[in-house]
Simulated assay, not measured.
Amino acid sequence: MAQVWISAAGLCGATIIGSVLGFLIKGLSHKWNDTILGYCAGIMLAAATLGLIVPAFEQGEQWWLVVAGVMAGAFFLNVLDLVTPHLHHITGLDAEEHRHNASLNRILLFVMAIALHKLPEGMAAGVSLSDVVTTNWTVSLGIAIQNVPEGMVVIAPLLLAGVKPMRTFVISVAIGLLEVVGVWLGFALGSVSQALLPVMLGFAGGAMLYVTSDEMIPETHAHGYQKQATYALLLGFMSLVLIEKFFE
Rank of each mutant, 00 (worst) to 15 (best):
E97M: 06
T220R: 05
T168Y: 04
T15H: 02
F76D: 02
A8R: 00
H100F: 09
R106G: 12
L80G: 05
G22V: 08
S103M: 01
F75P: 04
M1W: 00
A222I: 01
M200E: 07
V241T: 10
A188N: 07
L87Y: 09
V192K: 05
L87K: 02
M71Q: 10
I175A: 08
L234T: 13
L158R: 00
T49K: 01
L50H: 10
V170G: 04
V163R: 05
R167H: 14
A204H: 03
E215R: 03
A9F: 13
A204G: 13
K26Y: 13
F203P: 12
T134F: 09
E150S: 08
V183C: 11
L109H: 10
L185D: 08
S239F: 12
Q194V: 10
V54R: 00
G236Y: 04
S191C: 05
S213A: 12
E150T: 08
Y225G: 03
E215S: 12
N101R: 02
A204R: 00
I155H: 10
W64G: 07
P149S: 05
I25E: 13
Q59S: 13
T230A: 11
G190E: 03
Q226W: 13
V154S: 08
L21Y: 14
G51C: 02
G176H: 02
N33Y: 15
V199D: 08
V111I: 11
T35N: 06
T15A: 10
G22I: 09
F246V: 07
G176I: 01
G122V: 03
V180E: 01
G69M: 04
A174T: 10
L158F: 07
T84K: 02
A125M: 02
G18C: 06
A14F: 08
V192G: 09
L196F: 15
H223I: 00
M112V: 11
G73P: 15
N147K: 01
A41R: 02
A195H: 07
G92L: 08
A124D: 07
V127C: 06
T168P: 14
G190S: 04
D214W: 03
K164C: 12
M200F: 15
M208F: 07
I16A: 04
W5G: 15
H89D: 15
V199A: 12
E96D: 15
E58C: 01
P85S: 06
I145S: 14
D214Y: 11
G60Y: 01
G186Y: 02
W64R: 00
L119T: 03
V180F: 03
E96Y: 13
G22A: 11
N78R: 03
V173C: 09
E179S: 07
V170C: 08
M71H: 09
L108F: 14
L129A: 07
G38A: 05
I43M: 12
A68L: 14
M123S: 04
D81E: 09
N136D: 15
G126R: 00
A41C: 11
I217P: 14
D81W: 05
I25F: 15
H86I: 05
H117L: 04
D81G: 14
V132R: 06
A48F: 11
Y225F: 14
W32R: 01
S239M: 04
F23T: 07
W63T: 05
I107Y: 10
H221Q: 09
L201V: 02
L65H: 04
N105I: 06
L233Q: 13
L11A: 03
V70T: 05
M166F: 14
V67I: 13
